[in-house]
């Protein structure tokens, strides 16, 4: 009796896992299959196509600008996303670097010297407590005064400002985990405060730094709202471009949208793989005796 009830519970648990998993994976499945579907299979009326009948790479070719425009009905908007992908890379990388630079220094100051007092970390976090949409219009006006609308520096500044609180909070705890004496040893060994940070401390929080960089990059990479408002045509990031993938003739360009979505997963995924070795490694093994 007992073993049966246990196995029943096991089955129930498995079922729950499968259901929840399916729920989460369904959109991904839709995107992957859609990206390989020819236009006729995108959204046929009264029909559900679970798997492409005639798989094709056309969507990817179109998105990467490898073919001339698709001419099913008439000249659609350009579906060549290679430019926007590059724009996105530049915008997200710049914003991430700014956030990291300011955030790491701020976190170190807060962790080691209690810079700004006890409340500063919380005050920095408060910056994140209202939605960016609440300030997007004032931001646009400020940026236009500064002639930074539709420019990379404009996006960099905003991305950096929006994400640096995360850097401060993440890096602060990594710095706090590292024994204070490691920095002090470097100072006694002849480093300046800056030297101690860059030569002795940062090399030992590589893991944390890598994780933080990845996190912030993903935030900046996937931003839609800020780029939508602050850019027009010189800088068009991929999420904004993705949204524009529709035409009067074809309606939503599901295929190219799915293909682009799939491609947009790649940079963070590649970045994650590259820094994986730092992510999984322990932080301070051997630094102190126990």
């Amino acid at each position: 009796m007992r073993s049966r009830s246990v196995s029943l519970r096991g089955v129930g648990r498995l079922l729950a896992i499968v259901l929840v998993g399916a729920g989460f994976l369904a959109p991904l499945y839709w995107m992957v299959t859609m990206s390989f579907k020819p236009q006729a299979e995108w959204n046929p009326i009264g029909q559900t196509i679970w798997f492409p009948h005639h798989p094709t790479l056309d969507n990817f070719r179109n998105i990467l600008g490898l073919t001339s425009q698709n001419t099913v009905f008439f000249q659609a908007n350009s579906t060549d996303a290679s430019g926007p992908i590059v724009h996105s890379l530049i915008a997200a990388t710049g914003g991430t670097l700014i956030a990291l630079f300011i955030g790491v220094l701020a976190a170190y100051g807060i962790a080691r010297f209690r810079a700004g007092g006890r409340m500063l970390p919380f005050q920095i976090l408060q910056l994140r407590m209202f939605p960016p949409v609440a300030i997007i219009i004032p931001l646009l006006i400020m940026m236009s005064y500064l002639h930074l609308v539709d420019t990379y520096p404009g996006l960099w500044l905003v991305y950096g400002a929006v994400t640096f609180p995360f850097v401060v909070w993440l890096m602060r705890s990594f710095f706090q985990d590292l024994p204070r004496e490691i920095g002090e040893a470097a100072i006694v060994d002849g480093c300046t405060q800056w030297g101690a940070l860059f030569k002795a401390i940062l090399p030992n929080v590589k893991g944390g730094l890598a994780a933080t960089a990845l996190f912030v990059f993903i935030l900046n990479w996937s931003d839609f709202l800020i780029a939508l408002v602050l850019t027009q045509q010189n800088v068009v990031t991929a999420p904004v471009f993705l949204n524009s993938l529709q035409s009067a003739g074809a309606g939503q360009e599901y295929g190219p949208q799915a293909a682009l979505g799939l491609i947009l997963i790649l940079p963070p995924a590649i970045l994650g793989l590259v820094i994986q070795r730092y992510l999984v490694r322990g932080l301070t093994f051997g630094a102190i005796k126990r």
């Binding site: 004496e181 100072i187 051997g286 630094a287």
Partner: peptide
């Protein structure tokens, strides 16, 4: 501190975990 020409061995040792023994000794 770095200009005093005095060395200290901390109670928790504070070796540089990212550096080899050679790197630790070479650092100063």
């Amino acid at each position: 501190p770095g200009d005093r020409d005095i060395a200290i061995m901390f109670q928790n040792l504070a070796l540089y975990p990212d550096k080899t023994v050679y790197g630790n000794l070479a650092f100063p």
